[in-house]
């Protein structure tokens, strides 16, 4: 963490301030929504927005304190090195694509491609192993969820075509 010269990355302080601001923004949204729902204490006890309103206020207030604390402490530490973040993003980005593609391609096709990509790219496995896991897992999933427990999972054009 302390070795700044060799490995660069975003400072812990910057990220922490960013997170704090995001939380405060969330608090403001909550307050806005609560005001819309009614925040006063009616004849029958508190109304729908009463609790969320104060919860929102607490979020904003706590964030303000956290922001101040984050500004004060400056040990120059890194949040993470760029190489580490690249590792993290190499999971987040494909997962995001996977999640985004789910409604259109269905679960099975997307999962096959996702598992295959992950194993081939990050694990450097042989194609045979990759194919076995990438096809085996969705098939087992299909059997357990759809056949056994009768829980329908999202399907796309391929499943439609296969008549599943």
């Amino acid at each position: 963490m302390s070795s700044q010269g060799r490995s660069a990355g975003p400072s812990h302080k910057t990220v922490e301030l960013g997170v704090t601001l995001a939380i405060a923004l969330f608090g403001i949204i909550v307050i806005a929504g609560s005001v819309k729902a009614g925040i006063n204490w009616g004849a029958e006890g508190p109304r729908a927005g009463f609790f969320p309103f104060y919860v929102g206020l607490f979020i904003v207030a706590a964030s303000a304190m956290n922001f101040r604390n984050a500004l004060r402490e400056d040990d120059g530490g890194l949040f993470a090195e760029w190489t580490q973040l690249r590792q993290v993003m190499s999971v987040v980005v494909p997962t995001a694509i996977y999640v985004g593609a789910l409604p259109f391609t269905g679960l099975y096709l997307a999962s096959m491609i996702f598992i295959a990509w992950f194993m081939r790219w990050l694990g450097k496995y042989g194609w045979l192993t990759v194919a076995a896991v990438a096809i085996g897992m969705p098939v087992v999933t299909y059997l357990i969820f759809e056949r056994w427990f009768m829980v329908p999972l999202p399907k796309g054009p391929v499943e439609e075509w296969l008549g599943l």
Partner: peptide, 20 residues
Amino acid sequence: IPFSIIAPLILVLCAIGAYS
């Protein structure tokens, strides 16, 4: 089981769990 096999499987299972 090596991470690069189990991790995508866990991610897929989590997605199924969240969906269902």
